[in-house]
Nucleic acid binder design. Sequence first.
DNA 1: AAGTGTTCCAACCGCTCCTTC
DNA 2: CGAAGGAGCGGTTGGAACACT
Length: 266
Amino acid sequence: MGRPPCCDKVGVKKGPWTPEEDIILVSYIQENGPGNWRAVPINTGLMRCSKSCRLRWTNYLRPGIRRGNFTTHEEGIIVHLQSLLGNRWAAIASYLPQRTDNDIKNYWNTHLKKKLKKQQAMGAIFAPPPPPPSSSAETACSSSSYASSMDNISRLLDGFMKSSPPTATDVKPNIAVVSDPFMSFDRMSGTGAGLAFISGVPQQQQQQPALMGGMSYDDEATGQQQQLHHQLPLCSIEKWLLDEAAEQVADLMDLSDGGCSSLPLL
DNA sequence: AAGTGTTCCAACCGCTCCTTC
DNA sequence: CGAAGGAGCGGTTGGAACACT
């Protein structure tokens, strides 16, 4: 059809986002919720195309995302799912709701591919993911080794206030989260990728039969409840997934000893 | 210390899918 | 039913950071 790309327009800014732009975007989404990306640059005055806004939100600013090193367990999940699904990063990301598809894709391309190649060269099969740490280990890891985007945003705001803008690589774990009246993500429930991921299922996956309905992520305080909630839905999804690919999976199922127990506690 | 090579990741691009009219 | 437009996905790239000589 030859529809012109949305970013062709003159005056559309490209390249790295500034903290100011991040704040504008976050504040807009906080008020209106994610979705209707077309309207975002118009309503915010950001000189960015809608795609760029969506990408920035889903890959960086969205609440609940982790940044930083992948755990061995996560690596195993990714390798396992990649073998099942191929390069369907969004689908893979749905099993690691705190990771973005872009992050997973990057990690695969930069680390795992090489790692696998190496291991295959050595005639070894990639080690199955260790069982998810019963509680404290992984939890501690999650809370201290990664900066959630809440941290990111807090830091962003903090940095902005101090006029020393943080960069993406600047974001470090263990940043004390400043109390942040700015961030109540209630509005973000119910629409858009953010919610979909937070509730453990990306929008695409929501078309699949195994879907839970009506889960919502009301606020940070419900995080632990969410973890409990995620277990059941993910079991369903995995069941669906594995049913679909039952044949190929047979030899891989040893990765999932105990069925859902091999999945991360999301 | 300077130059060069390598790694990594944020962001862009182009395509497809989905929804609306 | 088909065209148009918006959203999402996967591949790719630019450039900063890091490692090595």
